[in-house]
């Protein structure tokens, strides 16, 4: 077993164990950053697989994304620090089914796909090739990614920001009821409160 093999096994173990701990810890913050650790371990494996850019980018992206996820998890979850122990898993049967299906599907895909066998050269200019690909044949993909991201920005602003150019965006809106046509489940608009 070479050093590279050893590193691979260690990193895989870190990825799997921290992924498992995500569901065993009570604290939302710990759960988010355990997931980040899991992703970082996977990113390190990518670095070993001669994918230096994708590996580094994964670390970079996952750090900020898990940071933002932690913010939202703490914001919306009851008992965010897990001061009272609780179960982090729900809908067990469905989840087990989904996980098993995904695992089998991916395994089949890996085993039956004809993966390329030639090694990537140690000094291959992978980032340069990626850049040429982006600006050449995949130009349309690249630009439409820009449009997609713009759509994502607009959508997230519309959904999340209350302060709007024309005043509070939820003014006069009526939260849906718990059953169709029922009483609003959340805050009742002020105009209707006056009527009552």
């Amino acid at each position: 077993m070479t050093a590279a093999d050893l590193a691979f096994y260690v990193l895989s173990a870190v990825a799997v164990v921290s992924g498992w701990r995500v569901f065993r810890t009570d604290s939302m913050v710990r759960a988010s950053f355990l997931l980040m650790l899991s992703f970082i371990a996977v990113a390190a494996i990518m670095l070993m697989l001669a994918a230096p850019y994708i590996g580094m980018a994964t670390v970079f992206m996952m750090a900020v994304e898990m940071m933002v996820m932690a913010l939202f998890m703490v914001m919306f979850m009851m008992n965010p620090a897990g001061l009272n122990p609780m179960s982090m898993v729900h809908q067990n049967r469905l989840s087990i089914g989904a996980a098993a299906t995904a695992f089998v599907g991916l395994t089949v895909a890996v085993l039956f796909t004809d993966l390329p066998h030639e090694k990537v050269a140690r000094q291959a200019p992978v980032i340069r090739d990626l850049g040429h690909e982006l600006l050449g044949p995949s130009m349309l993909v690249f630009e439409s990614a820009g449009v997609t991201l713009l759509a994502a920005m607009v959508a997230s602003v519309v959904l999340s920001a209350r302060s709007g150019r024309f005043g509070p965006s939820d003014e006069g809106s009526r939260p849906p009821g718990l059953e169709p046509g029922g009483e609003p489940a959340g805050r009742v608009p002020e105009s209707e409160q006056e009527d009552e």
């Binding site: 900020v64 913010l71 914001m75 990614a145 920005m153 997230s156 999340s160």
Partner: peptide, 12 residues
């Protein structure tokens, strides 16, 4: 919080 969502898109 709306800023963080915008930030994620930028980061991408």
């Amino acid at each position: 919080y709306p800023m963080t969502l915008l930030f994620i898109a930028f980061e991408m």
